[in-house]
Nucleic acid binder design. Structure first.
Lengths: 220, 220
DNA sequence: CGGCATCCGGGAAGATACTG
DNA sequence: CAGTATCTTCCCGGATGCCG
């Protein structure tokens, strides 16, 4: 008779060889996947993560980063002097979790309970572009857009039926959008008018860009 | 000035318009995604789910099923007399969550910490076939396999570079495998010898089938 | 037995305050 | 700014019991 000692760790596992179950042990805890999401477009500092994830308290963020680091998903690095600040980044393998985030987001977007008016982080906005881009609608369009959300700037390029989104300087973009993510999402996904957005440069380019996306029909 | 009352519900939400965050509210609670996994190949009874998910207690299963039903992911049905038993099934939209499960499993299979010797449910085994099937390796192969795990039987067909797996009778299969999921996985993914498996019919067909799968390289 | 309610202990999540 | 310390609340998981 084998009396396995029930430790706090073993009770928290799923004891399941299924890869999905193991994945949940790695990034299935509350907030973990959203932290990974925020790191998907490059390293962030502790305070950046807190700011992007309101509702996540400092102690939980500390625990999650420790867990993700132990799992090999996240690495903690110290930038070289004179910066000398500590940042958190994804490992190569951690970055490969993007399809998990994308598929979950794509699926949940069809939920009747989805409220698109809630706050949206800049990184979420960019990742949603990657997820919801419709190559068929873009055809052979070619354009470069800049997005400025406070201090954070991003460059989105559409070319050869593909979309890339990354952090970067907005110089050289055909058009720069400087409205908050919620407002941009309302236009791109909600089909609202472009008038309310703060746009510099060729407004028509952004109007065309907004047609490359469409939210799928609600389920139920 | 708006003083939002902090209820137990609102504290549990993410308050994030990102689809991924909403997805986590729907199927991100502990055990929820594994329950969806177990329903992916057809309706199950309360006791079936408990048996497939050891470690999940009855009261938590009740809570999860309530939550998933409220979210529109699961429906509770009563089979017509004389069966008259209650079963839980996925909605059409719920069934569309399979890519989430697949991508998470595919990603986590590369984890250094993944232990493939743990117990594996029959449904997990079948879904892993769907996830890990390599059409390139299968070429134009054409075969029908049966799997029998106790009372549960499944049919897997390979044809036209695609694999289908569903519950069904094993009559008519080229080969029937009757070993437990863990043993089958050890052969298909671990590359172990086929000798130890309980196989009825054309053993060579299964041997070829086993070559259509390969676990990706470990990360790190 | 299937499904669900209830009670309890331990631990994780969350808010707040505090430290280097 | 980047975390720790502490405390409260709530969830998870086990056990028991009720009812059809």
């Amino acid at each position: 008779m084998k009396l396995e000692k029930v430790t706090s760790e073993s009770r928290r596992r799923y004891d399941d060889a299924c890869g999905t179950a193991h994945g949940l042990e790695l990034i299935g805890e509350r907030w973990a996947l959203l932290i990974v999401r925020e790191l998907m477009l490059g390293p962030r500092r502790f305070g950046d993560l807190r700011a992007s994830l309101p509702g996540l308290s400092a102690n939980v963020l500390t625990q999650r980063l420790e867990g993700l680091e132990a799992a090999g998903v996240v690495v903690r690095r110290r930038l070289p002097p004179p910066a000398s600040v500590q940042v958190y980044d994804l490992t190569d393998w951690g970055r490969e979790a993007e399809p998990v985030i994308s598929e979950l987001g794509r699926w949940a977007a069809r939920s009747p309970g989805h409220d698109p008016t809630l706050p949206l982080s800049p990184v979420s906005m960019m990742l949603s572009f990657r997820t919801m881009f419709d190559a068929g609608k873009a055809g052979d369009a070619r354009m470069t857009l800049g997005f400025r959300f406070g201090e954070e700037t991003f460059v989105v390029e559409v070319a050869d039926g593909a979309l890339t989104a990354r952090r970067g300087d907005t110089n050289g973009a055909d058009v720069v959008v400087a409205s908050p993510p919620e407002a941009v999402a309302a236009v791109v996904y909600g089909g609202g008018p472009v008038d309310g957005l703060a746009i510099e440069g060729r407004r028509a380019v952004f109007e065309r860009f907004a047609d490359f996306f469409e939210l799928p029909a609600k389920a139920g």
